[in-house]
Amino acid sequence: MVVNLREKVEQDLGVTLEGAFSLLVVLIDPDGVTQSSKKDDRDTDLTGQVLYDTVVEDPATGGRVVINEPIVTLRRSSLIRVPEAGETWSVKIPLDPSTPEVLTTFILDPTKSPEGGRSIGFIRLYLKKAAQE
């Protein structure tokens, strides 16, 4: 059977997002349920694309600025529960790719909603630093 191109792209996420370039990700959903493994393979750690820097245009000056913004991109089909806009989640990621087993807690909150990618099966999470109050 010929695989639809969209399905093929979604399957390729297993390589592009969860392959050799990926890092460990641990999610805690609003109900307090922790997900640290893939939905369809509970023996495999949940991983995703973790980027620490991004380039944005500074609205004040119009110049391009490199900022430290952790962005995590995950394959939707690997998630038991997918974050929705308006929800608050805890997301743990390594801060340094040289120490991938050391995880730091960040917050996904309504300040900046997750971005779609529903068409080809991924979700992008913009993380906020978490401070103890």
């Binding site: 300040t111 906020k128 630093k129 978490a130 401070a131 103890q132 109050e133």
Partner: peptide, 10 residues
């Protein structure tokens, strides 16, 4: 500001 709350529990 960062998000603030009970980080210790998380």
């Amino acid at each position: 500001k960062a998000a603030g709350g009970d980080l210790a529990t998380l």
